[in-house]
């Protein structure tokens, strides 16, 4: 009986003509266009300096060399290794802060009851919409007064105060889906709120903690504005700032070295993407936020 329904014209999708092979052809074409620029950058980074320009749109270098990577790595007075270490430290510390702080706060919103809860929750959601530019200058003044300009503190410390409401929201959504009876059973078992958080909610929330950690890491890694404002000394630079200095110092003279460093700066993100793309995609689909 269902067969007859299947044979009805137009049943299978809203685009009956775009079926099978044609559909894949279209998608592959789009994929190709999407990825081509990135491949072109990788290919460019492997070419000798002389070859990159002059009209070669292809992906195959006539000659493969890692000279551009060597040039780029040591292209500034501080080498890129330092920038990578800096970025890694900042991103890891920021990620830890985000995950701890956001999970504590989300637990309060999703699982505890206290006076004024709805009010604070509404305010928290309100800050999701608030452009950070509004707090930028007084925050800068504050950190400057504290003597933290040209240190990493302004990039790390705010994460320990759950300033990015996105992560709170992400976790509240997840925590709310955990059956409340588990908390109640734990309360009957004599658990304090802390023990419920530690022993029941956190172990059951590994997927969302991982998702938050991944997004947090990537966004801190990619952050350009924060380091641009707060970090002035090159030995403290992040990878993003290093790249930007590289453009300024070398202009267009060594684009392949710039490409090489750009490719390297994307490697950590790409690896995370490779291993955790399911978590990333679910994170976006469930909260529907941001990039």
């Amino acid at each position: 009986m269902t067969d007859t329904v299947h044979d009805m014209p137009g049943r299978r999708s809203a685009y009956p003509r775009l079926t099978g092979g044609l559909r894949h052809a279209v998608l592959i074409a789009i994929s190709f266009v999407m990825v081509y620029p990135i491949l072109w950058m990788v290919s460019g980074s492997l070419r000798p300096a002389s070859e990159l320009f002059g009209g070669d749109a292809g992906l195959i270098p006539s000659q493969v060399t890692v000279q551009a990577y060597r040039d780029g790595w040591f292209g500034l007075q501080v080498n890129f290794g330092r920038f990578f270490v800096n970025s890694l430290i900042i991103s890891v510390l920021a990620t830890v802060g985000n995950v701890i702080a956001a999970s504590l706060v989300a637990f309060a919103f999703a699982r505890l009851r206290f006076y004024g809860q709805k009010f604070w929750f509404a305010l928290m959601l309100g800050t999701l919409m608030l452009p950070y530019h509004v707090t930028l200058i007084p925050q800068y003044v504050l950190f400057r007064e504290l003597g933290w300009v040209n240190t990493w503190w302004p990039l790390i410390l705010p994460k320990y105060f759950a300033v990015d409401a996105f992560f709170i929201f992400l976790m509240v959504q997840f925590f709310r889906a955990i059956p409340r009876e588990l908390d109640e059973a734990a309360r009957m078992d004599g658990c304090s709120a802390w023990r419920i958080y530690r022993k029941i909610i956190l172990p059951l929330s590994m997927p969302v903690l991982a998702t938050a950690a991944i997004f947090s890491f990537i966004w801190t890694w990619e952050d350009f504005f924060g380091p641009l404002i707060y970090i002035s000394e090159m030995s403290q630079y992040t990878v993003q700032l290093g790249l930007r200095s590289f453009i300024d110092s070398s202009g267009t003279s060594s684009w392949n070295a710039l490409f090489a460093m750009s490719v390297l700066s994307l490697v950590p993100i790409f690896l995370i993407f490779l291993f955790f793309q399911r978590l990333l995609i679910e994170g976006i689909a469930t909260t529907g936020m941001k990039r």
Binding site: I218, E222, F224, L243, F270, Q277, R291
Partner: peptide, 12 residues
Amino acid sequence: FYLPSLLGTSVA
């Protein structure tokens, strides 16, 4: 299709 969104705002 998602990859460019993720690489998104990086300087690279």
